[in-house]
Every structure is written in structure tokens, then in C-alpha cells.
Write a protein that binds this DNA or RNA. Sequence first.
DNA 1: TTTAGCACTCAAACAACAAGAGTGCTAACA
DNA 2: TGTTAGCACTCTTGTTGTTTGAGTGCTAAA
Lengths: 340, 340
Amino acid sequence: MLTERQLFLLQVIIDEFIQTAQPIGSRAISKKDEVTFSPATIRNEMADLEDLGYIEKTHSSSGRVPSEKGYRFYVDHLLSPSHLSQAELHLISNTFENNMVEFEQVVQKSAKVLSDLTNYTSIILGPKVYETTLKQIEIIQLSSYMAVAILVTNTGHVEHRSFSIPEEIKPSDLEKLVNILNQQLRNVPIIQLHERLQKEITMLMQKYVNDFDGAYQYLKAALFDEQPVQLYVGGITNILLQPEFKDVNKIHSLYSVMEQENAIANMLRSYSNGIHVSIGQENVMDEMQDCSLITATYSLGEEQLGTIALLGPTRMEYSRVISLLHVLSKRMSHTFDSWF
Amino acid sequence: MLTERQLFLLQVIIDEFIQTAQPIGSRAISKKDEVTFSPATIRNEMADLEDLGYIEKTHSSSGRVPSEKGYRFYVDHLLSPSHLSQAELHLISNTFENNMVEFEQVVQKSAKVLSDLTNYTSIILGPKVYETTLKQIEIIQLSSYMAVAILVTNTGHVEHRSFSIPEEIKPSDLEKLVNILNQQLRNVPIIQLHERLQKEITMLMQKYVNDFDGAYQYLKAALFDEQPVQLYVGGITNILLQPEFKDVNKIHSLYSVMEQENAIANMLRSYSNGIHVSIGQENVMDEMQDCSLITATYSLGEEQLGTIALLGPTRMEYSRVISLLHVLSKRMSHTFDSWF
DNA sequence: TTTAGCACTCAAACAACAAGAGTGCTAACA
DNA sequence: TGTTAGCACTCTTGTTGTTTGAGTGCTAAA
């Protein structure tokens, strides 16, 4: 168990290191106003904290630096909730007052405001469409052999896909098909579309639509193939401002993994409700083991829609970032709720 | 005027430097099989080439490095068209044989194949929608106070925008409005939409639709506000592999400017038909003055649609990149032509 | 005109050294 | 018994000097 004084010193060391990125020495600590005891005492305590694994030396006669275990303890036990400044709250409010009416817009602006306020990199996983329901399907013919299929969900999400129409299929067939699809599938959850289509509607359609099989084959690919994940990244260059990323190789490996949107998306999806902090080696992705990742979720009603995250060095302003994510995820959820 | 031998030496120096990124000395050149004269002779010639400004020394006793004037001369007069390898052509063919049916898909895959083949960064400006014509407008009501407007062009491009409906407007009004819009505006070039709407149709609409002014105000914002530019970037991390970008500050300034999509898009738009090479200081953007940018255009019929570009260090494989852009821009144009 | 020879220059790598920040330990102190 | 002053020791950082090697320019001979 740590003594009061050790807790205090650990907090001072981590707070200081987060600000300066420099190893902290006993003399520097003793100079602080809040500190009443001498460098020698501090050295003794620091030796103990080091034995316990909370801080480390970069070399045998250097000052101390928080270890990952130290950050973990700090996040779990020492964090005082930081209150955001008026200016920060104002900036967030401004972003959301801008009368936004689209998911994409909200998510994109949130990513921007997060990265602007923190100087870290924000990653937001766009709202998943699975739980939404179908509002309408449209097929619009562009030429005799091309058409675009459009699918609208109850949340105003629009998917579209162009496809080529085989010659055998007449426009009238296509029209009938769309009518049937809309009649039968309206308000069906997107995730059930494919199944419902195969089980219940195939028979019906074959009866009314000539060459249903041909049409269906094309339409299926156009409408129900899996859609690309939507990942919004803000302030990717902020990483370059951090002194821990002076090395081009580090930057390269981190940026490379950021390009793999699917992997990032899956990783983000794996976090449940609430705020999660992954420090250094705790991260699943190897390339992020010099970083900390803080995640939160946003939702529509009870339904968790997506994840917002901030990526920075392990020397992160945990307190501020957590408060910010808290405010922003609430704000996003609130905005979405207000629409429906 | 340069002598034959000077031309030859300039070519050798630039070719060699493009491969190695190291200053080239007289001895290294003399060792090449094609070179029959001695290091001393080469030194004399190099001194002349330096006086003329085509090559430079990095310090007083170093080997020579091409100057920007040297690259410019190389590109204008010395470039031998490189023939692409079977493997390269194959990779491009594979990309395009994948039965693509959408602009976005073609552009995105092209960006990827370009960056993969070159290890530079590809930037593609998405097809402009101005010259396309309106195929159809749809308005789909999501709830009593929200709707999504969808606009489809003859090229299968889909724009959509959610908007909130003021209470005064009845669904029936909305429906009438859409009908009139479709009747009057079908096949009108997108760029003329706004003007046509104001000049010719306002009167008609006011007659049939209650509270037209209210509805129009909302719809206008939803449909006709300027759309965000579409910029596709491939292989942004490739820049980090180049030895000239070991410095984090350089990377930061370049990446920062790449984030300003509008500025990049405008810059790319300013290039006319054909292939253009901007070397170092020739670039309009300050942040790119250590880079070379090579641009080409793609089109639909006679209509220039967009720009594809490659960004790399001034020490770029000009010959190969130009050949590649040539092939790819043709291939893209061809694909689009085949659709319409 | 070309080339061999040679003196000269500069960057890069390395060692030696001083300064400074910080530590651990011991002994004295409250 | 916990705290602190004092001191020897360690390691990084910055400076300076040296060596090595690649490359140049110039001169004189072929």
C-alpha cells in the first residue's frame, strides 16, 4: 500500500511529466510550493516508488519517468476530474449549435473539435447501420443498361450503388420489383433485409416479375453487400507535434496501421459502453504500444451507435481528455436523440 | 548550348541520383561501362555543368546533385519514355477488369494502384458534377419534421442531404414540389439548376404549392449548396519512406497542407489537359517546394472530369511516373466512356 | 583535348573532456 | 525514528580535436 506522501509524489511526478515530457528530479519537485520536504526525502520515496514499479529511470542517474503501471494507477486512483474551461465548452457548443441534421456531419465535426482541443488524434467510428430500419428503396435508370439503386434508412442514412442491367430485364419488371420490395420491406431492420428477402419474398416476386432471378442477382449485390466502414480521423498531424514521435519509423508504423481502416474499426467496436483507457502495451494493436487510446461511445436512445476515441502518447492529459470525451459523447447522443 | 557529352553526363548524374539519393562523384561515373573517359575529364565537364546551373555541390568537396534547373532540363529534353513492365501493366489491368460501375470506385482504386506502383503519394480529384445533368430528385420523409433530399445525376452520382421540415409545410405540398421539380428540371445541367429554379419555376410553384417560399428555402440548402470536394489520396505514408523526409518538421508541414482539401483541389483544378510537371519551387504551394508534382487529367468524352497527380520528392522517377499517369488517365477515361 | 598526379576541402565518425543534473548512501539532527 | 545535509558517483550532453575518406580543382605532361 502506498502512503499518502507516496500517492502525492506519484501524482506530482505524473502531472509534471505530462506537461514537460522531461524526466523529473527530486530537486525540481522540492521547489514546488506544495512540497514541504527536502530533495533527500523525495529521493528516498522515489526509490520506493521505483521498487514498486510506478516510476522508472531513463538511465542510472536520471530523473524519474512514469511507467505504464504508474499511468494505470494514476488513471484508476489519482485522477481528479478536470473541469473544462469556458472557452472549451464554448467551442463545443458552437460546433453543435450549427443546426446539424446529418450523422456524417455531426461525426465529422466532432472529430475535428476533439483533435483541435486536445492536439491528439481523434478517431470516430461512424454510426452503424445495422440496427436502423429500411425507409425506402429507389431504383433510377440512368441509361438502357445502367441504373443506380438507392436505399434510405429511417435515420436518413443513404446508401447507393450503381449497377448494370442485363438486357433481358425490362424497365417495367424493375419497377414492379421495387414496388414489391418497398411494400414488403419497409421498416424492416437493415440487418434482416437479406434474410427476409430470401425467405419470404422470393416466391412472391417470382410470380409477378419476369426473370426475377436475373434481376435479383444484380440488385442484391447493389443493395445488400457489406458497406465500407466509415472512420473519421481528425488531426492526424497532431501526432507529429509530440516529442515522443521524433522518429520517422515510429511515425511510419503508426500511420500505416491507421490506414487499415477495417482493423481500426474492429478494434474500436470491441469496446463496450463507457469510457475505456488503454495504456501502452495494453493496446491490442502492436503499432500503438507507445500510445494511449481513450474510447467512449455514443448512442441513439438505448442503442450504442459508434465509438469515439483519442489517440496520443502514453504521456497524455488523461484527465482533460476523459472529461472531453464524456462531454462530447453525451452531446452527440443528445443530438441524435433530438432527431428521432 | 550543351555538348553531346555534357548532355550524356547530365543524364547519367540525374539517373544515378534518382536511384541512390546520394551525391555523385566523378570516379563513380567513370566506373560505369558506358563511360570511356577519365574522372578528371568528368570533373571538368561537371564544373561547366555547375556553372550553367544544372547541378550543384552540397559542400565544397562533395559530389554533384541535380539542381531544379537540372531536373527541368531533364524532364524537357532528356526523358526517354520508359516502357512499363508486364507486371505493372498487369496490375493496372487487374484493377480495371474488376467490373467497376461507379466513379468513386474507379477513382479510389486508381489512387491505390498509383501509389502502390510508385511508392509516392497519389492524389486524385474526384469527377466534377457541374457538367452532368439532373436525372431525378427524390424527397423522402423520415419523420414528421425531418426528410432527406436525394439528387441523382445522369452519371449515377448521388447527392443527399437531410433537412428539417418546418411545421407549416404539409407532406402533400412537398410531394407536389418534387413533381414539379422533376418535370421542369430533368436533364438540366447541375450547374444551371439554381438559376433555372429561380428564373423560371418560382412562379409556377407559388401557384400550386402552399407556402412555397418556406419549403423552397429549406430545399435549396439541402440540394443546391456547394458540395464538398472529393479528394482521394493514396499511399500518404509512402512519403515517409523517402530519405529526403527524415525531418519531422518537413513531414508536418507537408501533411498539414494535405489536410486542406479545398486548397489542394483548387490547385489541381488549375492544371489543363495533358501531363504537367511541377518541380520544387515551381509549385504554387509553399509546402511542396521540396517536392515534385506530376498531374494528368481524365475525362468523359470531350469533357475533362478531374485530375490525377503524384507527389514525391524532386528526385522522382519522372520517366516511369509520366508513363504510368499516361496509361492510367487513358484507362480511367476509357472506363467512363464505356459507361455512357 | 585528355589525363595523371597532387594538394586541398569538407563531412562524418570517433575519442577525450568538462559541465551539469541527478542519484544513492552515510551520518548527523530534531 | 523519520528527515535532511553533504558528498561521492554516474550518466547525458555539448564541445573540441583528430582521423579517415571521398571528392574536388589545378597544373603539367601526353
